[in-house]
Simulated assay, not measured.
Amino acid sequence: MPERNNDFGEFGARGIKGHEAVAWQLDAHAGFVATRVTARLHYLTRTERARAAAREAGLTVTDRTLKAWLDGRRSPSRKNLRNIESAYLQVRRRKVARYLLGRLNREGCGTRVEFHLLNQSQVTRPHHRVVEFRTLNVRHWDRIVEVWAAADDQALDDAWINEAVVDLGSQWGRYEYVTAIGFAA
């Protein structure tokens, strides 16, 4: 069984960790769209439950300040803009996690995942790895979606390796870094 890559990129290979590509893909499926700050504030404040989740996610301003922002009388500072963005992402992830889980597991059938090769264009010929395009049907997304919704990067890395990548067989270490991960939900 191969070990994890400790010196990735030493010879010029380029790519990202597979769990980061999965997180980006899950975020895209969750429907993160570029919206104005006021639209995100409305999303975070339209119900008491949403407000509680926003406070829990780090948006701790008074109701008076929120009202001023929503009315356009004041604008959030850069720090508060980052807090709004962070709270929006956390609340949105938690809200769509159950829906995504159902779509990805598809009643035990799973979802086909494509592993797009890492970029070896800058690697000298003797150091090239033989890495081919691979697909895999991932049937159990529970842990992956759970840690994605919780925004736990290390746990997502572990879950992605243990729940999906090791099913590629004895050469799974070759697919720890990729240029992209593709799947449809």
Rank of each mutant, 00 (worst) to 15 (best):
H42K: 12
G169I: 02
V138D: 11
N80L: 08
V22M: 07
A68C: 02
F11Q: 06
E146A: 10
I144K: 03
F133P: 01
L59R: 07
K95C: 02
E3M: 09
S121I: 14
T124F: 09
K79I: 06
Q120N: 06
V96G: 00
T60K: 15
W141Y: 05
R139I: 09
G173T: 11
A53Q: 11
F11M: 12
R14P: 01
G58Y: 01
V61M: 06
Y175A: 09
V37E: 11
H29G: 09
R14D: 03
I16N: 04
G108H: 05
L168V: 03
W69F: 13
W160E: 04
C109G: 05
L104N: 04
A151R: 09
S86K: 09
I16K: 05
G169Y: 02
L44M: 12
L104I: 01
V61Y: 00
G9Q: 12
Q171K: 04
P76T: 14
R46C: 15
R134K: 15
T38V: 15
M1P: 03
V96Y: 07
R125P: 12
M1E: 08
A30I: 09
A87N: 07
G9L: 14
L41P: 01
I84M: 11
E56L: 10
R55K: 06
A21M: 02
H128C: 07
N105K: 08
E114Q: 11
H140L: 10
R94D: 01
G173M: 07
R174E: 13
R73P: 00
S75R: 15
A155I: 02
T65H: 03
G9A: 13
K17I: 00
D157Y: 02
V145A: 10
S77L: 03
E176V: 12
I144E: 07
R134G: 07
K95T: 14
H127D: 13
E176W: 09
G58L: 05
H128F: 09
R55M: 06
G31C: 09
H127L: 11
Q122S: 15
I181V: 12
A13D: 14
L100E: 11
P2I: 12
E85G: 06
Q154R: 10
Q171S: 08
A150H: 00
L26S: 02
K67L: 14
K67N: 15
V131R: 07
D27W: 03
Y43T: 05
R55I: 01
Y175I: 10
R36E: 15
N80F: 10
D63Y: 00
L156V: 03
D7Q: 09
W141I: 00
T47M: 02
A97E: 04
E146Y: 08
G9E: 13
V131T: 11
D142A: 14
K67P: 06
V166Y: 03
T179K: 05
N83F: 05
Y43R: 05
Q122A: 14
A50R: 05
D71H: 07
R74G: 00
A13S: 14
L156G: 04
R129I: 10
D157C: 05
L136A: 13
R4I: 08
Q120C: 04
Q90Y: 06
R174Y: 11
S170Q: 15
